Simulated scan of single mutants.
Amino acid sequence: MSSPNLSFSAQVEAWVAESKTRMTAVMRESAQRVISDMQTPDKAGGRMKVVTGFLRASLQASIGTPANAMTQRPIKGQTYEFAAGEVALVIAGAELGDMIYATYGAAYARRLEYGFVGQDSLGRTYNQVGKAFVRSAAQKWGQIVAQVSTELKARVNGQS
C-alpha cells in the first residue's frame, strides 16, 4: 500500500478509497446472498415452498423505499420464473448507506412468511404454519457478511 512517491495524506486517501470499494463489494455480495437464501426452494434446502414459482417471481428489489407489494395474484395453471438479473442490477447500483429492500408482490407472501390461522377474504379456512424464509435469511446477515469478507480478503491476498 505505501508508496515512496506519494505523500502521507495521498497514501491515506488511497487507502480510504480502497477500503470503501471493498466495503461496497462486501455489502453488495452479502445482500445478493441474503436474497438468494430467501429465494431458495424448500426442495433445494431452503424454506420457501415453491409450487408455480409465482412467489419467487414476485420479488422486487429497490433502494430507499420498498416497492408496492401484496397486490399480485397468480394465473391458475401458469408457472413463473424469477428474474434474478433485475434484482442483481438494483443491488449493483447500491452504495454504502443505502437501504436495499426486497419486497414480495404476491398477495399471499405474508401468510407464507408468518403463517395464518383463520378465514381469508374469500372464506377459505387456513391453519398454516409460517415458513420464515425472509426472517431466517435476514438473521444470517452477520454470518454472511463475515463469510464474504473472509472470501474477499483471501482473494485480495492471492489465496484463491
Rank of each mutant, 00 (worst) to 15 (best):
T103F: 10
P41M: 11
K153W: 14
N127T: 01
M99Q: 02
S7H: 03
G118M: 15
Q32N: 04
S7K: 11
G46H: 08
D37G: 03
A132H: 14
A14W: 14
R110M: 03
S160V: 04
S30R: 08
V16A: 00
R124D: 09
F54H: 00
M38D: 00
V26D: 09
Y101C: 04
T40R: 13
A88D: 15
R110W: 13
Q143W: 00
G77T: 03
T21R: 12
S160E: 02
Q128T: 10
A61G: 00
G142P: 11
M70S: 04
A154C: 13
T24L: 06
A44F: 08
G118P: 04
T125D: 05
V156C: 02
A92K: 15
G142T: 08
L112M: 06
W15N: 10
R47P: 06
R111H: 08
R73F: 14
R110Q: 12
E86D: 14
E29I: 07
I63F: 11
R135C: 07
E86Y: 03
T52V: 14
A83M: 07
A84P: 07
G105D: 01
G115K: 11
L55M: 02
S62Y: 10
T79A: 10
Q159G: 04
I35W: 03
E86V: 06
A14I: 15
A92N: 15
Q143H: 02
T24F: 09
A44L: 15
S19K: 02
G45T: 13
Q128H: 09
N127K: 13
V156N: 12
Y101E: 07
S149W: 13
L55K: 10
Y80T: 07
D120C: 12
Q128M: 03
V51R: 11
S160Q: 10
G53L: 13
E95G: 06
E29G: 07
T103A: 03
Y101G: 03
W15Y: 11
A44W: 12
A106R: 09
F133Y: 14
A137C: 01
A57W: 09
L96P: 01
Q139F: 12
P74E: 08
G158W: 00
N157F: 01
E95T: 04
V26W: 07
A25Q: 03
A109Y: 04
G45E: 05
L96G: 00
R124L: 02
G77E: 15
A137T: 04
F8Q: 14
A102M: 11
V129M: 14
P74N: 11
T24N: 05
S9F: 05
W15Q: 14
T79K: 08
S149V: 07
A57F: 04
S149Y: 08
V148P: 15
A31S: 00
G97K: 02
A83I: 07
F116I: 05
Q159F: 06
F116V: 05
G53K: 09
A94V: 00
K153C: 07
Y101R: 03
M48P: 12
Q119V: 09
L89M: 10
E81C: 01
V12A: 03
F8R: 09
L96E: 05
A88W: 08
I144S: 14
K131R: 12
A102F: 04
Y114S: 15
S30H: 09
G115H: 13
L152F: 07
R124H: 10
